[in-house]
Computed example of a mutant assay.
Amino acid sequence: MIKVLLVDDHAVVRMGLKMLLNSLPDMEVVGEASEGNEGIEMALEEKPDAILMDLSMPHGKDGLSATGELKKLLPETAILILTMHDDEEYLFRAIQAGASGCVLKSAPHNELVNAIRSVCQGDAYLHPSAQKRLMEEYLGNLKEDGSDTYQLLSDREKEVLTLIAKGYSNKEIAEKLVISVKTVETHKGNLMEKLQMKTRPELVSFALKKGLLGYGIQ
């Protein structure tokens, strides 16, 4: 059973989502919150598998800020951003904050359900139009720069890059790859030098363009 927490400032939206998800055999809504701070408190109490997080909440903490805090407190919980904004800026900001993906509020019910199941399996999810724009941007970058720095990375560095982009800490990466934290830090330093990048958001953006999170161009 997938335990889901709803964080949205519109009671009618929460009611509709709750009715939809509770009607499914593998999902259960374990809590509702109307703003980010309340959502954080409830998430710590209920330990949900997935959180549907509204992006724009005028009262209290907004969705992006709450997502950033929750990924530090509950790194294993998947956060799916619900948004009305079909905009690249919001998309990248959500991913950088630690979200596993984004779904438009106008999306069909089956797309939302599939997105929840997908992120709970450890995959990332983007709505189709966002995937298309990311691929177009990736192709545009390739035309502007014929060199593919990704090929400079070793297989292990590629693994570390993918896990970093998925939001795992150095310690969690070390446990997954059965290596020391120091070795992870070395790989991270080497790949950032090869890619000429200095920050984690840059790595996440690069990984998105490379399709390392389960979508896009490989």
Rank of each mutant, 00 (worst) to 15 (best):
H59L: 12
Q121C: 13
A124I: 09
K71A: 03
R133G: 06
K132C: 08
V7F: 04
I40E: 02
I179G: 06
K158N: 11
L91Q: 04
K188H: 10
T183F: 05
S100W: 07
M42T: 11
L213D: 05
M192C: 09
L112F: 09
M27A: 09
V29K: 02
E175P: 02
A115L: 00
I40Y: 02
T186I: 08
L73M: 14
G214A: 08
M1I: 12
E202N: 04
T83C: 01
D54E: 01
V7P: 05
V4F: 06
K143Q: 15
K72F: 00
I116V: 06
N37A: 14
Y168C: 06
E28L: 09
K194D: 04
M84H: 09
K3N: 10
E89D: 13
S147M: 12
S147I: 13
F206R: 09
Q151A: 11
G98L: 06
G68L: 00
K194V: 03
M42Y: 04
C120G: 05
S100R: 15
R156E: 13
A124Y: 15
A165V: 00
R117S: 00
L152Q: 09
E45M: 13
H127L: 10
N190F: 04
E185K: 08
L126K: 09
M84K: 10
I2C: 04
G211F: 01
V7S: 00
V113K: 02
L5S: 02
K72S: 07
R200M: 09
S180F: 08
E137M: 14
S205I: 08
Y138E: 13
I95D: 02
S147Y: 12
T183W: 04
L208A: 04
P128Y: 03
A130W: 07
E193I: 04
A130V: 06
H85K: 10
V113R: 02
L5V: 02
L126Y: 13
I95W: 00
L70G: 03
E172D: 09
G211Y: 00
G189P: 00
L212N: 05
E172C: 01
S100E: 12
E89R: 13
M192W: 07
Q151Y: 12
S100P: 09
H109P: 12
N170W: 01
L104K: 10
I40S: 03
D9S: 12
H10E: 14
I173F: 07
K209W: 01
I164D: 00
Q218V: 12
L212I: 05
V181A: 03
D145T: 12
A43P: 02
E32G: 07
V30I: 10
S23M: 10
L82E: 04
L195T: 06
E136K: 11
H59W: 12
G189N: 15
M19E: 15
P75E: 02
K61M: 15
M57P: 10
K158L: 12
G122R: 10
K3S: 14
A115E: 02
V13C: 07
L142V: 11
A33T: 08
M135H: 14
L126V: 15
G98H: 03
G214K: 06
G60K: 03
N110T: 11
S147G: 08
F206M: 07
H10F: 15
Q96W: 09
H109Q: 15
P128M: 07
K105T: 05
P201T: 02
G63L: 01
L6A: 06
